[in-house]
Amino acid sequence: MQDYTYPSIFLAYLLFAVFAGGALYFLIRSIKDGYWGKDSEEVKYRMLADEENKYGE
């Protein structure tokens, strides 16, 4: 079987580096933008309260 690994494996390294960089960028950006504050947890309490009736209990 012919060996067609090398040119493309370098492409793969480059891709992984770009992805890691992107992930880091968005992590820092989201911390700066205040995404990790208390507000973003409100929704999990609200979803419990939106039931319109008590059927099925």
């Binding site: 968005f26 989201s30 933008d33 205040g34 995404y35």
Partner: peptide, 8 residues
């Protein structure tokens, strides 16, 4: 931008 991510 990302502070409101879950609302957009």
């Amino acid at each position: 931008m990302l502070g409101n991510a879950e609302k957009n």
